[in-house]
Write a protein that binds this DNA or RNA. Structure first.
Lengths: 199, 199
DNA sequence: AATAAGATAGACAGGTCTGTATCATTTATT
DNA sequence: AATAAATGATACAGACCTGTCTATCTTATT
């Protein structure tokens, strides 16, 4: 008895899985260690053996979330033939994810808001992730032939973060449903030199 | 002695002012009642006479922040002759604010992230505010002659929230500096029918 | 089978949080 | 000046939080 699948997974993974759900849905300060321990079915000392402190757990969770995101991005863009279509594919995926009821916004943004200090481990992991996304979008913009890749990259980045914000703030059925359309429009505009002349 | 200006302001205002600074900079759960009381120089019972609970204070603060925002928006758009230029003026102002060192992102977004339940008073006030902004941007888009005002309004809304996110996540000198350029580009694209044809 | 390592269970310490109670003092009203 | 209302200072209760300690039990390794 008691040989439920959950008990066969090692404690560290069970903790990270439980923490992921709780942190994402409720935030970081709102979720206590006791609750994570109770819901993951792990002893307190086992927890502190794997994670010296709550901040360490948060940082580990964010790192795992970051890794997961890059895998997700890779699967999305894998079959797209060129940079422009890769960008458009990314924003179709963002649309699909944003309007899904399970989407509760961006957990990295939540980390930055709850831990304002840039040096805080949680903020640092979140910032590294966001820097990576911005760099990726900028690089794809450059490869797609944008006149000002940094500007287009910044614009797409803001659209993406705005979509996550909409999901959290408005709940299901929010205006992030239009992000793919807007992104496509923006890409088209920045790729046509006649539209990007200075004022 | 002790007649410093701060002591001449009524307790309720001192509390709201202190709470504004602390909540905006640190978040809501991270700031305790005791700290607000200490820094505003008010007795605990005076606090609880004006605000029955911490949640009431948070809601009152957010309502005041919302009022302040609409005043700010009014001053920005007052002298602009037409809807399109009003939109562009808004995003110039967003740029200026985002890149300022004192900008720590959007306090309403922080409220939505720390209080996920849509029914929570803090989230409710934040959501009402965001709905208002989205409606305003959509209305200006419509008046400016956008083919799909809801799409343009949604896009501008996401750009704005993305700019606030950038400010919080990256600190001073972030990619929100390009939001005015991007917004202008997007408006131009959506106002020219040949660019908004369906795929 | 013997030994070492990891996990469980629960009590516990020290701190912080929200909110209440008590009582003296200041300010405003009449 | 007398009275009512608002504020100040501080102690306190009860809950919760992070992290530690001890002692028992299960699982790997050799």
């Amino acid at each position: 008895m008691g040989n439920t699948p959950a008990n066969l997974i090692k404690p560290r993974e069970r903790i990270l899985e439980t923490a992921a759900n709780l942190f994402y849905a409720n935030g970081y300060r709102a979720v206590g260690i006791d609750r994570i321990i109770a819901e993951s079915g792990v002893a307190k000392m086992s927890f502190y053996r794997h994670f010296p402190s709550k901040d360490d757990l948060i940082a580990a969770y964010l790192q795992r979330a970051s890794d997961n995101f890059w895998v997700w991005l890779e699967t999305i863009t894998r079959d797209e033939p060129d940079p422009r279509q890769q960008l458009e594919a990314i924003f179709r995926a963002v649309t699909n994810r944003s309007i899904h009821p399970a989407c509760l916004g961006c957990t990295f943004m939540a980390a930055a808001l709850e831990f304002p200090a840039l040096e805080h481990p949680a903020h640092a992991v979140a910032l590294a992730y966001k820097r990576g996304v911005l760099a990726k979008l900028t690089e794809l913009s450059r490869l797609a032939g944008a006149r000002e890749p940094e500007v287009l990259g910044a614009g797409l980045m803001m659209l993406m973060d705005g979509a996550w914000s909409a999901a959290r703030m408005f709940g299901p059925g929010n205006h992030a449903q239009h992000v793919a359309t807007i992104a496509k429009l923006l890409i088209a505009a920045e790729l046509m030199p006649q539209n990007s002349k200075k004022s």
